[in-house]
Write a protein that binds this DNA or RNA. Structure first.
Length: 464
RNA sequence: UCCGGCAUAGCUCAGCGGUAGAGUAGGUGGCUGUUAACCACUUGGUCGUUGGUUCGAAUCCAACUGCCGGAGCCA
């Protein structure tokens, strides 16, 4: 007798066949007509399976009547058409096996609505709710679509190190990795902590980006991408930031900035199309309960070309804008949230790729443009959540790169291996980084990034 | 980190100086191919923590902790 996933069972119901279904009870409604309705969910899809448990079952009084939301059971029986209006098929149970009861008084998930904030405190159980089950499935589809997109284009999947001694200049505060005694670390003659005695013989941290290593592999394997965890010790307390998040970073040799923007656009559209095509039921739920515009927004993005806009033109446009900005606009400023939202929501209502930022705003590795003032950078901005992709063409000219590093007073020795890439067969190359959770946020309409990663890490919170 | 708000029953919230409330969940009984089931009764709380003001504090004040919204930093 087959064990069936509820998703498969509902997709092609094997009517009048006997089968088993495992899952967790969502609700039980008793009928004194001599049976109970039990709805079970196994996480395979949004829908529950309604199981009819007759009072004649040998364990009806001892077990079935004590089932509450959260209990884990196996129901075995015959699938039939349902007499009720809310579901097409249901199971007439011949046997209900209880794997584990659930004490409803202490169970955090209630039958009535539980707030997203409360569910964050029960992150180990929240996947059992409609919302978080759907988020988990959409996230899974987006992960798989990411690999499919790059694999179909002959990109090499690259695993870059989590522990690193280089800091990808300017990407953010880093978490220190050390085995030294935190209470009394060894000191050098100046009184500073002596990391030469540490595990790696130098100060090590969790990575803030795999980009530099990805560049190394791109300069040999031609097209690579990373997809892994990234760590930022910034004290950022917003619905768009995590201390630990997942980043997708493609890096392409023989590619310029225009090719980089094209790749970003193609990739984002591929992701959103995958969700629209493969998560219909979950998306309908988000569209109804979370954000009534999410399907429309995703469809619009899939069908609309991204707007490409050089920074200098963006500044001119914002300067002429009929809007009351808190931060005044002038050439050289970094775009603020309000400016980004104006561009994506008011000026264009479509994704905008802003290119060629002032060099003073951007890190050392971005390629200097001929105007001497800007670099070949690009940020892809989406309505509502802002920057989702940041990328650039990399500086492949040895002399220009070194000059830039000196300008920023960087330690050349520390980056010698990175500079080597410009010594030994340097090529034009470009890449970008995409915040994976922000894509999940955008695709689901979830307002808080803490609700699109199973166990969020944020300032003051590394529970679970 | 800055600005603002919030913290009361398992959950969602009301009460805003004078003995702690509702809905819902749980329990008991009734009724029913039900589906946010329904009807009656009922269990359940040191009002986030610490200090202060007051005859008296859930209520006013301060600090702390956590959460939420906005901003900065960024993906």
């Amino acid at each position: 007798m087959p064990n069936l996933r509820i998703a498969d069972l509902l997709a092609t119901p094997p009517l009048d066949a006997t089968c088993s279904v495992n899952g967790w009870v969502r609700t039980r409604r008793d009928s004194k007509g001599g049976f109970s309705f039990i709805e079970i969910n196994d996480g395979s899809c949004m829908a529950n399976l309604q199981v009819i448990a007759d009072a004649g079952l040998p364990n009806y009084e001892t077990a079935v009547a004590k089932l509450h939301p959260g209990s884990a059971i196996r129901a075995t029986g015959v699938l039939t058409g349902s007499e009720g209006q809310e579901q097409a098929v249901e199971m007439k149970a011949a046997e209900i096996h209880v794997y584990g009861f659930c004490d409803i008084l202490s169970y955090p998930l209630q039958k009535q609505r539980v707030s997203l904030e409360r569910l964050r405190e029960a992150a180990h159980l929240r996947v059992r709710t409609n919302t978080f089950g759907a988020v988990a499935r959409v996230r899974n589809i987006l992960s798989f679509a990411t690999h499919r997109f790059f694999q179909e284009r002959q990109f090499l999947y690259l695993n870059t190190p989590i522990i690193t001694c280089s800091d990808c200049e300017g990407a953010g505060q880093m978490f220190r990795v050390s085995t030294l005694d935190p209470d009394k670390p060894p000191r050098d003659k100046q009184g500073n902590v002596d990391y030469s005695q540490d595990f790696f013989s130098e100060a090590a941290s969790l990575t803030v980006s795999g980009q530099l290593e990805a560049e190394a592999y791109a300069c040999g394997a031609s097209r690579v991408y990373t997809f892994g965890p990234t760590f930022r010790a910034e004290n950022s307390n917003t619905p768009r930031h995590l201390a630990e998040f997942w980043m997708v970073e493609p890096e392409v040799a023989f590619c310029d900035l225009a090719g980089d923007v094209d790749l970003a656009e193609e990739y984002l559209k591929y992701l959103f199309k995958a969700v629209l095509d493969e998560c219909e039921e979950d998306l309908a739920f988000f569209n109804k309960r979370i954000d009534k515009t999410v399907i429309e927004t995703l469809s619009h993005i899939v069908d609309t070309p991204f707007h490409r806009l050089p920074y200098t033109e963006a500044i001119e446009l914002l300067g002429k804008a009929d809007a009351d900005f808190e931060f005044p606009v002038s050439w050289g400023i970094d775009l603020q949230t309000e400016h980004e939202r104006y561009l994506t929501e008011t000026a264009f209502s479509q994704p905008v790729a802003v290119t060629d930022y002032p060099r003073t705003l951007k890190p050392f590795y971005m390629r200097c443009n001929d105007d001497g003032k800007t670099v070949a950078a690009m940020d892809v901005l989406l309505p509502k959540i802002g920057e989702i992709i940041g990328g650039s063409q990399r500086e492949e000219r040895l002399d220009v790169l070194l000059e830039r590093m000196h300008e920023l007073d960087m330690d050349e020795d520390e980056y010698s291996w990175y500079v080597d890439l410009r010594r030994f067969g340097s090529v034009p190359h470009a890449g970008f980084g995409l915040g994976f959770e922000r894509v999940v946020q955008f695709a689901t309409g979830m307002a808080n990034i803490r609700d699109v990663i199973p166990f969020p890490r944020t300032p003051h919170n590394a529970r679970f």
